[in-house]
Design a protein around this nucleic acid. Structure first.
Length: 226
DNA sequence: GCATTAACCACAG
DNA sequence: CTGTGGTTAATGC
């Protein structure tokens, strides 16, 4: 186990700004830093949940095995808490979290994390803010996926990745085609076709996992009208 | 009916 | 693993 100091941590969460020195000492005693490699499962669906995770560095996918196929719910980049809903809301994890890059996380004992929220309103408030933002984001994406056609969903996903994840019009897809399809909510084949279609129309440039957005305006139009 | 959309299958690189 | 072509089912005009 890595040695760590929570109070001196350079990537503390917003909520942690409201912790007292005593709480930091307790947090330190109730948490552990762990490194994961790309592809490692950090939180496993159907496993007992005994901790909350704080993603310190790296990128992960939150995904869920549905009745028929796998669904990627959301990509999350550090820093962020992971697994709060499933730890507070159920004993058993409702979803998995898998590393898309090498990552460093902090496991925090669930009952201790609950104690923190009982005793520190400002800490809890920041956690709630975070959860609410995520819920709004999920609702928005859910309704978009429900009501847009596949080109619109793909365009939206590409723009979202470019803006929210990489802040760059050129980026390296952290997902395979199958995973991207699971994120967009379509088949691998349909996704593949849409991408090559976008590429033909000079909306994007693509080789392998490298994507460059060439015509964002047009992509946004496609995203809008679904 | 006819056109469009998207999933499923098969196969090739 | 990924791209493409053919086929099929559902939906809308």
């Amino acid at each position: 186990m890595q040695k760590h100091s929570c109070q001196n941590c350079k990537i503390r969460s917003v909520a942690e700004e409201f912790l007292s020195p005593e709480e930091f000492i307790k947090l330190e005693a109730n948490s552990a830093v762990v490194d994961f490699k790309k592809g490692d499962v950090i939180i496993r669906q159907k496993a007992l949940s005994l901790n909350v995770v704080y993603l310190r560095t790296g990128l992960v996918k939150i995904h869920m095995q549905g009745p028929s196929k796998e669904k990627i719910l959301r990509l999350v980049k550090a820093p962020s808490y992971l697994g709060i809903p499933t730890t507070f809301g159920d004993k058993i994890n409702n979803y998995s979290v898998t590393a898309l890059t090498d990552t460093t996380v902090c496991f925090i004992d669930a009952s201790f994390f609950k104690m923190l929220t009982y005793g520190n309103g400002k800490f809890a408030y920041e956690i709630i803010i975070d959860l609410c933002k995520n819920e709004l984001f999920d609702q928005q994406r859910h309704i978009n996926q429900e009501q847009k056609q596949i080109p619109g969903r793909v365009a939206e996903t590409l723009i979202c990745m470019s803006e929210m994840l990489f802040s760059n019009s050129t980026f390296s897809l952290p997902l395979s085609r199958v995973e991207l399809a699971d994120l967009v909510g379509t088949s691998r084949e349909s996704l593949s076709r849409i991408l090559s279609q976008f590429s033909c129309e000079q909306l994007i440039k693509m080789n392998g996992s490298e994507i460059q957005i060439l015509n964002k305006e047009r992509l946004e139009m496609i995203s809008q009208k679904g």
